[in-house]
């Protein structure tokens, strides 16, 4: 019983009106950017345009939202010291972490899906929901929310000031590493998500957009590799985080110093 309450109350906390309005504003900003890019790309096919906008905007937003929300799962509670109220409840620690992580992943997925629909609307107008690539992106967003979420929760348990580290990973690592030569792209979650989304390739863009969309690299792994790799990542990170949290000792920072 406390599992479902824990999940729902955490989700409700993540989706408080103030936060939802902030992310809605961000999504509307993406729509605006989409409309502007569409205006200057009149010759580009709509599917290719959606692919460009999705990879440049939605799949940059996904790790950013995940970095922010995942670090709220525990490290915000630790920073605010309210973790003590959670640790002294009769809830097994793995269950506590799992339910809060799932709530965070759900919130990230909802925000990213809304953003994807908005971006689709900016390209397809009223036919946004009949865009077939949107549904491919839905799959990638769902597994992406789980992959980024489990990775960032794990990191937030290991390091102080986890949000900075996670945002650096979300922006710098995820943008740059996938486009490095050789097999480095295997170290980027975004490479796997690009493969799962199966978007049409984008041609003839400026170098800035091409870099942001991950289009500088021709590396693309088969979907049959991407899915199991993401699932293994989610399971390993989640199990690792739960194992670590089971042995976690809470000591306020000023006491530790």
């Amino acid at each position: 019983m406390s599992s479902s309450y824990l999940y729902l109350s955490t989700l409700r906390d993540f989706l408080r009106l103030k936060r939802v309005l902030t992310w809605l504003a961000v999504s509307l900003g993406l729509v605006l950017m989409g409309v502007l890019i569409k205006r200057v790309s009149v010759d580009r096919p709509v599917d290719e345009l959606y692919s460009l906008l999705s990879s440049t905007l939605v799949f940059r937003l996904l790790p950013l939202v995940s970095a922010i929300f995942s670090t709220q799962v525990l490290s915000a509670e630790i920073e605010q010291k309210t973790i003590v109220y959670l640790l002294t409840r009769p809830i097994p620690r793995p269950q506590l972490l799992l339910m809060r992580s799932l709530a965070s992943m759900t919130a990230v997925a909802i925000i990213s899906l809304v953003a994807a629909v908005f971006v689709s609307a900016s390209v397809h107008g009223a036919g946004a929901l009949s865009n077939p690539y949107l549904y491919r992106d839905v799959k990638a967003i769902l597994i992406g929310a789980a992959a980024y979420g489990s990775l960032f929760v794990f990191i937030s348990l290991l390091v102080n000031r986890a949000m900075i580290v996670c945002i650096l990973i979300a922006f710098v690592w995820e943008t740059a590493v996938a486009q490095l030569p050789g097999s480095m792209y295997y170290l980027s979650i975004n490479s796997y998500l690009t493969s799962i989304a199966e978007r049409p390739s984008v041609t003839q863009t400026g170098p800035g957009l091409q870099f942001l969309s991950g289009g500088l690299s021709e590396n693309l792994m088969p979907t049959s590799v991407a899915w199991p790799a993401m699932l293994i990542l989610v399971i390993c990170m989640s199990v690792g985080a739960m194992a670590w949290f089971t042995r976690f000792e809470y000591l306020p920072r000023e006491d530790a110093e």
Binding site: T82, V84, Y85, T88, P90
Partner: peptide
Amino acid sequence: FANPEVFRHLGYCPEIDNFY
């Protein structure tokens, strides 16, 4: 330590002044 069975019998009022 991290034992839910113990927490069923225990109430704790911490020194911290932090809340939601």
